[in-house]
Simulated assay, not measured.
Amino acid sequence: MTTEPCVAAPVRRGVAWHTPLSVAVLCAAVWLAHSHWPLLRGGAGRLAAADQGWLLLGATATLATWASAALAQQGAVPRRLPGARLVAAQFAASAANHVLPAGVGASAVNLRFLMRCGLPAARSASALAVKAAAAALVRVALIAVLAPACPGVVRLPGVSPTGAAVVAATAAGLVLLLCGPLRPRCRRALAAVGGDLRAVHARPGRAAALWGGSLAFAALHALVLVAVARSVELPLPPARVALLYVAASTAAALLPTPGGLGSLDAALVLALAAAGAPGATAASTVLGYRLLTVWLPLVPGLLVLGVLVRRRAL
């Protein structure tokens, strides 16, 4: 596998699509800030009375999440990527992820970035699949580690016979679909992902970056929530708050909302309240977490996205 740094692929100068896209991104940033201004203003007012030291820790952890995402993405690709542009792409991807549903924005930005670095579309897509698989396995491992320290927090929901029948029928339909018309494509996709996994794990540095970055990303987001919880004096132990975040964010990822907005907020508030936190304090904690990880970086992230598009890095 080659390890030379990537270079931007040639661009057809006759297609000047980047300018209107940059303007559209800027308009989206202004519209989002205007439409959610009461939420931003109210949340800022609540956090003004919170412990600023803990909020500073949460803000620092938020900044580190983009570096950890860049580390994980580098670990999923055998060739070396440009570090500064990679971190900027993760910052832009996080903003795009809160505009489009179910992670489509982040995936589109990262896919385009990898393709602009010279990777074929298929290899870029398999690199994203490798990163997503590592992130999912890391979250499962975190739940398995934290659950024994916080007994009774994570419970398996009861399943009715009707629900079990629906799940079984859906699984059977997927198996028939994958074994039928989609079988050749699925085999090629799985072979590509498997090849990339072997290539990454053949290099200990890349494997450490993939798993270390994925672990750091999830842990840092949990740390942001813990820091905000401490700043508003949420009466729950940090380990319990971290476990609730990992479990709630994993469940919210199944719902196709932009960046988990709405689904994650509701899941976190309900989880914190069910664990014994006062409802108002739980809501303030989630609001502070969202302000640090979504609303405050959103407009700068979209502006960075526009700059990357303008400079043809995406």
Rank of each mutant, 00 (worst) to 15 (best):
A141D: 07
G180P: 05
L174N: 07
R85H: 11
L190N: 11
L71E: 04
L177K: 09
L111P: 01
A70T: 03
A169N: 07
N110C: 07
L190Y: 08
C179T: 15
R155F: 05
R123S: 06
V167A: 14
V109C: 02
P78K: 01
S68L: 04
A67S: 11
L119F: 00
S68A: 15
R139K: 14
V145T: 15
L142W: 04
G152S: 07
P181F: 12
V175N: 09
A165E: 04
A102Q: 09
R139L: 14
A84S: 12
Q73F: 05
A102N: 11
A169C: 10
G103L: 08
P82K: 04
V140S: 11
G152L: 05
V175S: 08
L178E: 13
C186E: 08
V99F: 14
A69W: 02
H98G: 05
A168S: 08
V175H: 10
V130D: 01
V104G: 05
F113S: 00
L100K: 11
S124L: 00
L114Q: 01
A95M: 05
V138S: 06
V77E: 00
L137A: 15
L182A: 15
G103T: 04
P148R: 10
S94K: 03
Q74R: 12
S94P: 03
A164I: 03
A70E: 02
A136K: 12
A125F: 01
I143W: 07
L182R: 14
A189I: 09
C186F: 14
A102V: 09
A84H: 09
V99N: 06
S124C: 00
G118H: 00
G180F: 09
G118P: 01
A125V: 02
P151F: 11
A171M: 13
G105P: 02
R183H: 15
C186T: 10
A92P: 02
G158N: 06
V166P: 03
R183L: 13
A169T: 11
A89L: 06
T170V: 15
L156E: 10
P151G: 07
L190H: 08
V104S: 10
A93M: 05
R80L: 13
S124Q: 00
L146Y: 06
V109R: 03
P157F: 07
L174T: 13
Q73D: 08
L174C: 15
R116F: 01
R185Q: 15
C150Q: 12
C179E: 12
V153H: 04
L128Q: 01
S124I: 00
A165Q: 05
A89V: 05
V77H: 01
V167W: 12
H98D: 10
V109M: 09
A88R: 06
A135T: 10
G163V: 11
G152F: 08
R187F: 11
L174M: 14
R187C: 13
L119Q: 00
Q90A: 09
A122G: 09
